[in-house]
Amino acid sequence: MKIIPINSESSSEPENSSQGKEPALEIIDLKKSFKNNKVLNGINLTLQKGENLVVLGKSGTGKSVLIKCIVGLIEPDNGELKALGINILEQDEKGLNTLRKKIGFLFQSAALYDSMTVRENLAFPLRTNHTITDIEIEELVKDALENVGLLNAIDKMPTELSGGMRKRIGLARTLILKPEIMLYDEPTTGLDPITAKEISHLITDIRQKFNTASIIITHDIACAKIVADRIIVLKDGICSAEGTFEELQNSSDPDVRAYFE
């Protein structure tokens, strides 16, 4: 894959942002309530570089809220969030936007821009980097599409794509900024088992190819088995269990085992 500098602003970032011994992501005592509903009640979490972490939990346990807090879409009530050594909650608008370019987010619905072609969708995140020429953008778009095996869909509109294709294009659009951390919000939901398996393998391929640290929120145990280095289970706003797939599968806690049955 051709190397073209994407995050030109990164030179102003602290030097330790992507080097040294810091974990990719560190969450300390994260709390978030909506009215009287405590969704996150003191989450503590560390994500190492190159690690795939799967988050399991019932609907409404705050899995999506957790990753939306990480990218600043939701402001937490309390706690500390460090990504690549940078405290997310202390960033101003510019700093937050710079950091966001290093954190990829795949939405459940893929969130492709309806009014743009696949090519325009992928080129869109690159538009703020004025050091990249149109030719280089075209190359990056084609490379990203090749990575997800959909180069032939380059001129299609999102409405012409299947669910699996939309997810892949969404993934390609996220990867085009070469993020160091990837956040997947239910990447296999709504897909048939074969396509879901393909997406799961794509997630592991991405980790191997780009050494990204990833948080994968899923209800799909088959997906979790393929992608997870480590799994945490959210319950009542905290991490109630943590371990590898096999460890949690044989857990003494019937609530945890229930996910694997």
Partner: peptide, 18 residues
């Protein structure tokens, strides 16, 4: 509103675009 519902606005925000 449909961009909001389908998270397209959030997607712009997380890719560092206002």
């Amino acid at each position: 509103a449909s961009m909001r519902v389908t998270e397209q606005i959030d997607a712009m925000e997380v890719s560092g675009i206002n």
